[in-house]
Amino acid sequence: MNGEGRTRLPYLAAAAAMTAYCIGPIVFMALTAVSRRPDFLSPGAGLEFTAAHFLEVLRTKSLHFLEYFRNSLVVSAVSAALSVSVAAPAAYAITRLEVPGRTAVLFSALAVSMFPQVSLVGYLFRLMTSLGWINTYAALVLPYTAWILPLSLWILTSYFSSVPRDLDRAALIDGCGPLEALRKVIVPVAAPGIFSTALLAFIFAFNELLFALMLTTDHHARTIPVGVALFEGLHGEIPWGAVMAAATLSTAPVVALTLLFQRRIIQGLTRGAVKE
């Protein structure tokens, strides 16, 4: 039974390889961003640190990087907040109220999350154009919220159903209406779960590309992923240092959130996917 000792070395090697594989590209990105030349790994070249790429990205007005960044933060935060506040009452109804058709709602939400985004975007483009909303926050926030809702609903439903039923019964007896029971008891008790859901929703919105590509046209509403995807040099040659600096900056928030809340995110992801 004592295989631990014998398997220790291979385990460590495998774990090291896994870590290198996972963070290697991220480290490479960050190093390129601070390196004077992008081919610092090539034989004969070396790593010469410089902050020039970051400064270029942040200072060059025509790149609009900070505006993209702000747009991304606003759109993702509002979409996450909106989707959680819309999904929470629905998850409450599904787990507590025995509404006819609740299973249908849950499964249509699942079906929705299987839809290809491209099958919405053409119509959304026409819709937003006719409303005159192209290149506004609303053009992104509304589809994003709808797009993240299924995920939020599933995760919240799972969290809410793990809150004991007797707690909201107690609240009902203590004089709460259903909405009050949701607000005063279930939401606070499930707060960690709600936070995880909001976190996931934020990351999903923050990383979205296709809707943003179609529904925005410039720095007034364009988000970071579009900015990074379309970042090209002015003179034909791609300025890799600057591209990687922009990429590093735009990855920083999600990476920070992931490192800080690793457990919550893993919990949320598995709640959404693996129903116990």
């Binding site: 590209p25 991220i26 490479f28 579009v226 995807a229 990429a247 735009s250 992931t258 893993i266």
Partner: peptide, 23 residues
């Protein structure tokens, strides 16, 4: 280890696309 493994998932595909483009 878990945090490390989770990182690629959190990176926007637009960013990882650019990184692999350079790679």
């Amino acid at each position: 280890l878990r945090a490390c493994v989770l990182l690629p998932w959190a990176v926007p595909a637009a960013v990882s696309g650019r990184v692999f483009e350079l790679v």
